[in-house]
Simulated assay, not measured.
Amino acid sequence: MPAKPKAPPSSPDDVEAQFYEALQQADLENLMAVWSDDDEAACVHPGGPRLVGAPAIRASFEAIFANGAIDVHPEKVRRLHINGTALHHVLERVQVLGEDGVQKAYAIVTNVYVLGPQGWRMVLHHASPGMARELQEISEAPSTVH
């Protein structure tokens, strides 16, 4: 049974924590509570189409949760905060139970949060299929291309 909706998150990190907790618990109400109600809010699941607006986003997660919770864990989060906007680049580790036991898959994700009248809310979750964790980032340090 889904948990009772929580108090509004007070920071982008709180929004992100509630988002991933809701994924791990298949809690649609708490997952949707982090989303902006802006008509332009968007979600892209790995290999999927762009979903725009809360009704489309809700329907997609409802279908996903019909198969149960998602054992997903954010790793290597990089944060860029500018005024009332926060961009988080995330490596997601997804664990699934397969024929050979627990298998790991990765997604490269961009989560965008905006500070509005209702506090911090997610306006974009864009996930792309990843590869082995060791290969996710080409460089940890800035480089110059000539």
Rank of each mutant, 00 (worst) to 15 (best):
L23C: 11
D14L: 04
K6S: 14
A105N: 13
D13W: 11
A3I: 12
D27L: 05
A86Y: 07
H73G: 06
M131T: 14
V123P: 02
V109E: 01
R133T: 09
F65L: 12
L97P: 02
P5W: 05
G47H: 08
I57G: 00
L124H: 06
A41F: 02
V96R: 12
V77S: 08
Q25G: 08
G53L: 02
G84K: 15
G47S: 09
I57R: 01
G68Q: 11
L91E: 02
D71Y: 00
H89C: 14
L97T: 14
L124K: 08
L124N: 05
D13G: 08
K104T: 14
A7T: 10
N67K: 10
Q118S: 15
F19M: 01
I138P: 01
S60W: 03
L87M: 14
A127E: 11
A63H: 09
M122D: 06
D14K: 00
D37R: 13
L115D: 12
P55D: 02
A59Q: 09
Q18I: 04
G48M: 07
S139E: 07
P12F: 03
M131Y: 12
S128L: 11
I70E: 10
E40K: 14
G130N: 02
E29V: 15
D27V: 06
W35S: 00
S10N: 14
P49H: 04
Q95E: 13
L87D: 08
P55F: 00
G48V: 04
Y20F: 08
G130F: 03
F19G: 00
G130K: 02
G53P: 01
Q103W: 11
A107C: 12
G68E: 05
T110D: 11
D27F: 04
H125K: 05
Q18K: 01
N30G: 04
N67Y: 10
Q136A: 15
W35F: 08
P2G: 04
I64E: 04
D27Q: 06
T144P: 03
G130S: 02
G47M: 09
V90W: 02
P142S: 02
K6Q: 15
P2F: 05
G130L: 04
H146G: 03
H125M: 09
S128Q: 13
V145I: 07
M32G: 09
I64Y: 02
A66K: 14
P2D: 05
L91S: 01
F61H: 04
Q25E: 14
Q118G: 12
S11K: 01
D37W: 07
K4N: 10
A56Y: 00
F19P: 01
S143R: 03
D14C: 05
